[in-house]
Amino acid sequence: MAEITYVRGDATAPQGKGVKVIAHVCNDLGGWGKGFVLALSRRWPEPEAAFRRWHRERERAGNDFGLGAVQLVQVEPYVWVANLVGQRGIRTGRSTGVPVRYEAIDTALAALGDHARELGASAHMPRIGCGLAGGRWERVEPLVSARLVERGVPVTVYDVG
């Protein structure tokens, strides 16, 4: 049975063997410039470029950009990055409430589960939706369990060491 393993470390350097998908939450404004995405961009340029293109071309037919959508970007032969759109806007000085959208994360994780199973991959992530998006892990963790772990996808969650 798959499970969630918690480790101290860098989610951009996923541990273990086989195909790995690094999942993280993005906003629906096309913004990329704070939080975990900075670590991704330092390591690989492709996820940011693909995300910006996906957002820019969102009006085109067949483009599914929006809350709950997932974009997979291959960055190494056995490593993929999953851009999960699970945040409405961004937090600003005048914001009330948090940008996280748990239902969008749930939808995106379900799609990620399908992709991970097709790839025979494990999933690796920081505590998604709980940084700049303002979410609470006690709300996100059951979604990760239901959409990935219960479907046989092993998950590793990385906490900064």
Rank of each mutant, 00 (worst) to 15 (best):
H115R: 14
H115W: 14
H115N: 01
R117K: 12
R117M: 09
R117P: 05
E118Q: 10
E118C: 00
E118K: 14
E118P: 00
L119N: 01
L119I: 12
L119H: 05
A121H: 06
A121E: 15
S122G: 15
S122F: 01
A123H: 03
A123M: 13
A123C: 15
H124W: 07
H124V: 13
M125E: 05
M125L: 15
P126V: 11
P126E: 10
P126G: 04
P126L: 11
R127K: 15
R127C: 14
R127H: 02
R127Y: 06
I128E: 11
I128A: 09
I128G: 00
I128K: 02
G129P: 05
G129A: 02
C130E: 11
C130N: 05
C130R: 07
G131H: 04
G131K: 03
L132G: 06
L132P: 04
L132C: 00
A133D: 15
A133T: 12
A133N: 04
A133F: 07
A133H: 01
A133R: 01
A133C: 08
G134K: 07
G135C: 07
G135V: 12
G135Y: 01
R136E: 15
R136N: 14
W137V: 12
W137Y: 06
W137T: 12
W137Q: 13
E138N: 05
E138W: 08
E138T: 14
R139V: 06
R139E: 14
R139Y: 07
R139N: 12
R139Q: 09
R139D: 12
V140D: 07
V140C: 03
V140G: 02
E141S: 09
E141H: 03
P142I: 10
L143E: 11
L143K: 07
L143I: 13
V144H: 00
V144W: 04
V144E: 14
V144Y: 01
V144D: 13
S145G: 00
S145W: 03
S145F: 00
S145A: 11
S145R: 09
A146H: 12
A146F: 03
A146R: 15
A146G: 07
A146T: 12
R147Q: 15
R147G: 02
L148S: 04
L148C: 06
V149W: 00
V149G: 08
E150W: 00
E150F: 03
E150L: 13
R151G: 02
